[in-house]
């Protein structure tokens, strides 16, 4: 190819759409204060900045003690689920232009709080493990792939999207009322295998989910579907598992 010259500098500099917003954050600093408290920060952002960018700006420029999890910053790793203006969201999937000038940020409900917006996810993953979230099939595998038709594959497509962020589980009143309940995310991951034509563990999982901490504590409130950052129709998936328990998983 021809000679390449240096690219123009500075063309990716920010535009002129700066705005000032108030971010009200529920803090919990267990080293110095055994009670949570509210703190308000004023920060300049652009409309297309993510809420995560605003939180980073506060942390890096105003208060290094502000504590939250984050990693991929584009909605695929599931680290930064938190309660924003009353709803569970990923901070990296919200643009400031959509949030207004006053924003309230809290840790998700229904989880023990470690510090500020960081909650203890260990109980969440323990419940996930309970539903045997892995392919169960002891038949000898062929030398190549197990066959599966596009229609069979489509049957469980939606629930494979789950990123285990906890937004659904933390939005569920049944979880708030009973921390023993397995919760929507676990059922989504059970669904992913129950309806996979290659799996042989459906009976076992349906048995686990039919006990008193299983699917029947779902009251069809739909908060989970509304909270899911991956667009999974969580309540519908739970209903399908309920129907499979009642009528069998083969359709």
């Amino acid at each position: 190819m021809a000679t390449v010259t240096a690219a123009p500098r500075g063309a990716t500099q920010t535009g002129s759409d700066l705005r000032t917003v108030q971010v009200r954050i529920k803090r919990f600093q267990p080293d110095t204060n055994d009670q949570p408290y509210w703190q308000e920060f004023t920060v300049q952002v652009e409309g297309k900045d993510r809420l995560l960018d605003a939180l980073n700006k506060i942390k890096w420029q105003q208060d290094g003690t502000l504590t939250f999890r984050r990693s991929c910053a584009h909605g695929v790793c599931g680290s930064d689920a938190m309660r924003v203006n009353g709803r569970n969201r990923l901070a990296c999937k919200l643009l400031m232009q959509d949030l207004g000038a006053r924003i309230t940020v809290e840790p998700m409900l229904g989880f023990p709080i470690i510090r500020d917006l960081v909650v203890d996810m260990d109980p969440f993953f323990a419940k996930y493990e309970k539903v045997k979230p892995y392919l169960i099939n002891d038949e000898p595998a062929p030398h190549t792939e197990r066959l599966q038709s596009p229609e069979q594959r489509a049957r469980f497509d939606e629930t494979t999207k789950c990123i285990l962020c906890g937004a659904c589980t933390g939005s569920c009143p049944s979880v708030w009322a009973n921390s023993e309940w397995v919760g929507p995310a676990s059922i989504v991951n059970a669904h992913r295998f129950i309806f996979d034509s290659r799996d042989r563990g459906a009976a076992d999982r349906l048995n686990i989910l039919s006990d008193r901490t299983g699917v029947w504590r779902c009251r069809t409130i739909f908060n989970c579907s509304e909270a899911c950052p991956r667009g999974i129709h969580v309540t519908e998936a739970i209903e399908e598992v309920k129907r499979a328990i009642m009528y069998g998983s083969e359709e």
């Binding site: 892995y134 392919l135 595998a141 792939e145 066959l147 038709s149 596009p150 594959r153 469980f156 996979d196």
Partner: peptide, 19 residues
């Protein structure tokens, strides 16, 4: 890749059911 499929990875499929 066949290992991953045997462990359950949901690859997209051809009309005859292959990866």
């Amino acid at each position: 890749v066949y290992d991953l499929e045997h462990w359950g990875l949901p690859f997209n499929r051809t009309p005859d059911g292959k990866i």
